[in-house]
């Protein structure tokens, strides 16, 4: 019996004009798995992530998430995206809405909840990220860490099957990183499937099930964190890990 993957990406290529950013990437992720994607900047990590929910259109290849063919033109992409949460490096909270408004927007407009239902679900989501008391604050009144936690709440309120994290802590001051990682850790404990692009190697070491190393548009090597960090087999992986650990 072949194991059923919740994320199944095959042969993904992506061109930006003359740039060949992804050169045939395969990525399978199991349910409840936390996959950590590392690699030098420009290696295609973020582009890969954005191809999974089709914010970026792959030039070729296939993406199936939770049984839905994401690249099929007949797929209702807006409906499918509800099942795939995404957290951005720059938070991208809506500045003209409160924290609660940020979380309820898609609940009401996409999931079709009533205002009362949406409010209740949003408050629950904000509670999960420890910000129940900030529901009526606007993004401008929140710290970076709090903003990112609201952004996580915005995604998990839709009860996604998979969560994508695109460098969620890179824009944060060091002292605020911990609170966001804490939320991600608790999310993992609920069994959420997560794909994380990040430079937080400590977090990768003790929370990830698998680490994927990408370079130059290809997956070079993958395996359990211990194997990748202690015994990388590829020269390029070794160089990258060595560089990071020197800092």
């Amino acid at each position: 019996m072949v194991q059923k993957h919740i994320v199944e990406a095959r042969g993904i290529h992506k061109h930006f004009g003359p740039l060949h950013v992804l050169k045939g990437v395969d990525l399978q992720v199991d349910e409840r798995e936390l996959v950590f994607v590392i690699g030098p900047s420009g290696s295609g990590k973020s582009t890969l992530l954005r191809c999974l929910n089709r914010l970026e259109e792959p030039s070729s290849g296939s993406v199936v998430v939770d049984g839905i063919d994401m690249l099929d033109p007949r797929t209702d992409i807006n409906h499918a995206r509800q099942r795939i949460g995404m957290v951005f490096q720059s938070f991208n909270l809506y500045p003209h809405m409160t924290a609660l408004g940020n979380v309820t927007l898609a609940l009401r407009k996409v999931a079709g909840k009533s205002r009362a239902e949406a409010d209740a679900l949003a408050r629950k989501a904000l509670e999960r990220v420890g910000l129940a008391d900030r529901a009526d604050h606007t993004p401008g009144q929140l710290s970076g860490g709090q903003q990112q936690r609201v952004a996580i709440a915005r995604s998990i309120a839709l009860e996604p099957r998979v969560m994508l994290f695109d460098e969620p802590t890179s824009a944060l001051d060091p002292e605020l990183v911990g609170s966001v990682l804490e939320v991600m850790r608790s999310l993992r404990e609920t069994g959420m499937t997560m794909i994380v692009v990040s430079h937080e190697m400590g977090f990768a070491r003790n929370a990830a099930d698998r680490v994927v190393f990408m370079d130059d548009g290809l997956i070079v090597e993958q395996g359990p964190p211990a194997a990748i960090f202690e015994n990388p087999t590829h020269e390029r992986t070794r160089a990258f890990i060595g560089q990071i650990q020197r800092h």
């Binding site: 409906h79 991208n92 003209h96 898609a106």
Partner: peptide, 30 residues
Amino acid sequence: IHHGQWEASRSTGLSYGQTLFNVILPQAFR
């Protein structure tokens, strides 16, 4: 309006029109 606003909204499943009217225009009007 920053491109990230479009992406965040579309990633939660809002359509082009919904994003324009609920997320982009309110900020643009200001």
